[in-house]
Design a binder for these strands. Structure first.
Lengths: 346, 346
DNA sequence: CTGAAAGCGCTTACAG
DNA sequence: CTGAAAGCGCTTACAG
């Protein structure tokens, strides 16, 4: 019974029509009579026929799939994925599914020679780039992508004049808002955990927003209150806080550039005998699922990953269709929980 | 300059050989002189040539990609993915990459008519099924997959006589071990949070292991200490614990069938004014990243997701190669942290 | 509305 | 070791 696999010729034969007609009937072409279409569809279903994607793609010269390239910090543990990117992955997968696109997922190291490979081999019609990493290093690769006419979108800081298009949240605004919140709680010595250099434009923007809020409140920015943290992990956050503590500067709040860093920082504070939020308020950025289950629950800046996934896919599809697409910044929202001392339920 | 896209004919022309030779040279066929191969490779590189996957796949009749189908509880929030499956996803992606396979990722609802679609359309050579859900419902679909000669592996309980092959952790052994740990700490009234029915064979197996350990210690199983929890989320765990508490039965420990449930249970215990581990020991299952950052850090049963991903992919590839593949159970390991009262560092 | 035919870009017997 | 040729299973002008 189970012969190899039905082709459009098999169903054409059974339906008593030509193979072209089968193809048209199944692809929803209007050039087919309703009667023929129904007959063809019935037989196709009975034979469990599925259009061969490889043949179809080859002929149409596109693949109806998008590739998601996840860049991870090479230093991070092999099994770890940043929970924030994971939820982006979920949202992107869904956005693709809604549009009938398949999603190829691949982990990349920033050092790899990944540019254009997917599109040139017709595995995917376009690329979605996700992940932290040294922006200055990545930039030249992005440039190459543009030169090769590769369709791509990138999640990250929206920086002036960068190659290709990016979608990211408004880091400056989000950071400003959370620092204002800390300020409104009476905090004055607010430490910032996260790199503040052009290598990490997202963290840098958060630092800028933070400083803006301070200055607007008439508070001078103290460089001693900024601690570098390249990687976004609990371990790094923990260590950063110990570095800060070792400096001997006074601080009554910590704004960490990511939730993972913030959770690590809370951990260190506990070890150091400081209570959160009694002695020190702590705020993060991202609103990963873990944030609400940290102890105390973490006040943070929420990035709308659901919306982000939608827009990333939409912008990429625009490019694929040959339309003009532009970078876009999404608003971020402060989520108040217990870790800063306020009590409005999260 | 930027003409459309180089084909093997373009590079054949430049190299002064036939297109067949180009194909052979690039695919590593031994039927090509070293000299020719080098010349072809150089030109291919210069032209940024990539073999067209669609053409290649069509011809070879396979796609060198695997599809990962993620099933989620339809009740769960749209943006949520169980962190345990997320880490499986990471491990599977890497296992595929190591073998040169691409990975198509797709979310499915259990209600969807997903069987065989990917393989029949030649999008993928085989399927990896991941996710909880009603096993009894899924079973008939698995049966269909088998009938359609679809290659697939499934992560989950390894149950006797099930259709297809499965890879899962030894839930009975893991549960037995963690209950023994609780017992060794002097706990006697240990509640179990999680469904105990054939609909959820993984949770059921954990319940069985739990009961085995109790009986071995001469303790009768009290049905009042088991609380249903179908979904694996913090919310459900929280609610389950309140249900348990409302029953008015005494308990000095909680073994939750997943970390998410356990974290939710700890949350509820806190609200109820019970201290962990002072009044109640709490243990989970999975060892998701969040477990070590819960407060107190969660004692749990670790599933080796890295190994699991490897084996899942390997078993699937065996089937694709036409070799016999069999189900397999991986050992689970107790990770002791603070939530049960013991102090051996985790 | 339908059919015959070309062709998408490869891989792989087949013949040398 | 190399080339000419067939063919993978579709889609889509082209002609009716």
């Amino acid at each position: 019974m189970k012969t190899s696999k039905a082709t459009s010729f098999d169903i054409a034969y059974q339906a008593g029509v030509s193979q072209s007609t089968v193809s048209r009937a199944l692809s929803g072409s209007p050039l087919v009579s309703l009667d023929t279409r129904r007959r063809v569809q019935a037989i196709a279903k009975e034979l469990n026929y599925k259009v061969d994607k490889n043949a179809s793609n080859l002929r149409r010269q596109h693949s109806v799939t998008l590739a998601l390239l996840l860049f991870e910090d090479p230093t991070s543990d092999d099994s770890l994925i940043n929970p924030f990117f994971l939820s982006m992955l979920g949202s992107i997968t869904r956005a693709c599914a809604r549009r009938g696109y398949d999603l190829l997922v691949s982990f990349q190291q920033f050092s790899d020679d990944w540019h254009a490979d997917y599109q040139d081999s017709h595995k995917a019609d376009g690329l979605i780039l996700l992940g932290y990493g040294d922006y200055l290093v990545a930039r030249s690769k992005l440039q190459k992508l543009v030169e090769h006419d590769t369709h791509f979108v990138r999640w990250g800081a929206v920086v002036e004049g960068q190659p290709g298009i990016s979608v990211g949240c408004d880091n400056v605004q989000g950071a400003r808002a959370i620092t204002e919140h800390l300020l409104s709680l009476g905090r004055r010595r607010i430490a910032f955990v996260g790199n503040a250099s052009a290598h990490c434009p997202e963290f840098f923007d958060r630092y800028i927003g933070h400083c803006e809020a301070l200055r607007a409140a008439g508070i001078a920015v103290d460089p001693l209150l900024q601690v570098d943290a390249v990687d976004s992990t609990e371990q790094v956050g923990d260590r950063a806080l110990r570095t800060l503590h070792a400096r001997g500067v006074a601080f009554d709040a910590v704004f960490a550039a990511s939730d993972l860093l913030a959770i690590g920082a809370m951990h260190a504070l506990g070890d150091l005998g400081l209570s959160v939020p009694g002695d020190v308020s702590v705020a993060g950025f991202d609103d990963i699922p873990m944030a609400s289950f940290a102890s105390p629950a973490l006040t943070t800046v929420q990035q709308d990953t659901k919306r982000a996934g939608e827009i990333l896919v939409e912008r990429l599809l625009q490019q694929i269709r040959g339309e003009a697409a532009r970078s876009e910044m999404l608003p971020a929202q402060v989520i108040v929980r217990r870790s800063c001392g306020a009590n409005r339920a999260g």
